[in-house]
Amino acid sequence: MLELTVGGWVLAVLASISVGLAKGGLAMVAMLAVPLLSLVMSPVQAAGLMLPVYVASDVGGLIAFRRNFDLRVLATALPGAVAGIGLGWAGAHLVPVWGVTLIVGLIGVVFALNALIRPQLAGAAREPSAAKGSVWGGIAGYTSFVSHSGAPPWQVYVQPLRLSPVIYAGTTTWFFAICNWVKLIPYAALGQLSVANLKAAAVLTPVALISVWVGLRLVRIIPEALFYKLITWGLLVVSLRLVWQALA
């Protein structure tokens, strides 16, 4: 079992809650997990600890959204995501985590500010695109591999499609669930799924699963316009936090 202080376990529980809420449909919340844990351990160890929690929470999310997803969006984004995960594995010892964190944060900040400053752009729904899906899916897969922070590039691709909140949440859940299953292979090969991490993850998983149910209830009652405003502001806040973390 990991040796954490009381404060460290509090942060770990909060991180697990954020993962569960994300799997219940509030996707951007999960980006807080690794930054929170990075306050008491290395980002690499934090990512290794949280992956089993993500995978276990995926089960609850997939059951909840078993019929609510857009297959076209998944088909255009997943091939790039798998390639991005492979790239992350190949360069795991070459690229500093702070560099990837900074890039993810900047992408999220630019996209969120653009949506807030020019809200009229959000009105026209776009169609799924193989080219855009491959690019943003690849970036999402890569950044998800490094620090479970694939939400901003994923949102850059998916939010302009203007899916309904439930379909948006379900498609996001399916996308990252598949990415997390794929990530198990390189994470195991890199030694990030240690016995200590797995034991701690087993303790934290029930917290995350309960939070899946909470997130599911919230996403089904939030009005669509408010939903997109919340995830845009959430993207901005978390992205600024990632930029600060990288530069610090």
Rank of each mutant, 00 (worst) to 15 (best):
120 Q>T: 13
2 L>W: 14
175 F>H: 13
181 W>E: 03
61 G>L: 15
49 L>H: 06
48 G>T: 10
239 S>T: 01
145 F>P: 00
128 P>G: 02
159 Q>F: 00
236 L>I: 04
220 R>T: 00
129 S>D: 06
246 A>S: 04
202 A>W: 00
48 G>Y: 15
130 A>T: 08
145 F>D: 01
177 A>R: 06
150 G>V: 01
216 L>D: 03
53 V>P: 09
33 A>T: 14
193 L>G: 06
51 L>W: 08
95 V>G: 07
111 F>C: 06
245 Q>G: 05
70 D>Y: 10
190 L>S: 07
97 V>N: 10
78 L>M: 07
160 P>D: 04
147 S>Y: 06
123 G>N: 12
74 L>H: 08
223 P>R: 11
25 G>W: 10
230 L>R: 02
90 A>D: 04
79 P>F: 00
6 V>W: 15
151 A>R: 03
34 V>L: 05
214 V>F: 08
236 L>K: 03
112 A>R: 05
222 I>P: 01
58 D>A: 12
244 W>L: 07
235 L>C: 05
213 W>N: 01
50 M>C: 10
1 M>F: 04
233 W>E: 05
23 K>I: 11
23 K>M: 13
234 G>E: 01
170 G>F: 02
135 V>W: 02
8 G>C: 14
188 A>W: 13
38 S>N: 12
46 A>H: 12
151 A>I: 09
87 L>V: 14
73 V>C: 08
156 V>R: 00
73 V>P: 07
113 L>Y: 10
48 G>V: 12
147 S>H: 06
201 A>C: 04
111 F>M: 09
102 L>D: 07
145 F>W: 09
197 N>T: 08
6 V>T: 14
224 E>P: 05
213 W>H: 06
121 L>G: 15
218 L>H: 04
232 T>F: 05
101 T>K: 14
147 S>P: 01
119 P>N: 10
143 T>W: 02
91 G>Y: 12
186 P>C: 09
166 V>E: 07
116 L>K: 14
116 L>Q: 09
